[in-house]
């Protein structure tokens, strides 16, 4: 009835050069490391990555940067990955720094049918450059626009075979939000469980949002 499990090869077939990817993780916590392994193995190039931070050179999203597969990154922090800074200075990677709350809300807007939103964050700073400003009840706001991706890579704590996801600890971060905002969503399952074994009250990401499930260790 549900056939969402994909092989390493089937995931590799989804990857194309110049793709826009959203990837979960906060300083590497909650990143789909097994899917990242497959991206590195296939060596797709000039990826645009939308993520909280570029992690460390040897962890999570940071490994994609270190492997020089990323042409552009939209993120809130690059300070823990010297390789991102080095490639930025060298001119081989474009970095768009976005306040963390604005970044996640732009992703949320992209997935929840909103044409944008007004935020006070960044008013009076370089963040406001080129953006429309609006005054609502005497307070200034910036108009921020939605973000969407071709592919979102989610790390689930427990995933059932239908695609329902629950997360563990702070590994949740961007994951349930990016699951709304891409054409195709792949969940890497920390643990795959049978349908019916997760409590419907506890499910964070409803099954239909997940297109494919990858279980690390599968061929």
């Amino acid at each position: 009835m549900f056939n969402k499990l994909i092989s390493k090869q089937q995931f590799a077939d989804l990857l194309k050069d110049d793709m826009v990817l959203m990837v979960g993780g906060f300083l590497g916590c909650g990143s789909p490391e097994a899917l990242i392994d497959i991206i590195i193995e296939k060596r797709v190039k000039n990826l645009t990555i939308i993520c909280n931070d570029t992690s460390f050179p040897d962890r999570g999203i940071g490994r994609l940067v270190a492997e020089k597969l990323v042409g552009r990154v939209l993120t809130s922090h690059i300070g823990t990955n010297p390789e991102t800074g080095r490639q930025m200075v060298e001119g081989t990677i474009k970095v768009e720094l976005i306040p963390q709350g604005t970044l996640i809300e732009r992703i949320r807007a992209g997935g929840m049918g909103l044409g944008g939103f007004l935020t006070p964050t960044g008013v009076g700073t370089v963040v406001e450059e080129g953006k429309q400003k609006m005054t609502i009840e005497g307070r200034e706001y910036l108009l921020e626009l939605p973000l969407r991706a071709d592919l979102a890579l989610v790390k689930g704590g427990m995933v059932d075979k239908a695609g329902n996801v629950i997360y563990h600890g702070t590994a949740r971060n961007f994951n349930p939000v990016i699951a709304f905002s891409a054409e195709t969503v792949v969940a890497e399952a920390g643990k795959l469980v049978e349908i019916g074994s997760l409590n419907p009250e506890s499910i964070v990401t409803p099954a239909p949002l997940i297109d494919h499930i990858f279980v690390p260790g599968q061929s």
């Binding site: 809130s76 720094l97 963390q100 006070p120 700073t125």
Partner: peptide, 15 residues
Amino acid sequence: KKVPGMGGAMDLVVG
């Protein structure tokens, strides 16, 4: 010199 990014700081101080 140093371009780490703002992380969540801009939202925190405004909010």
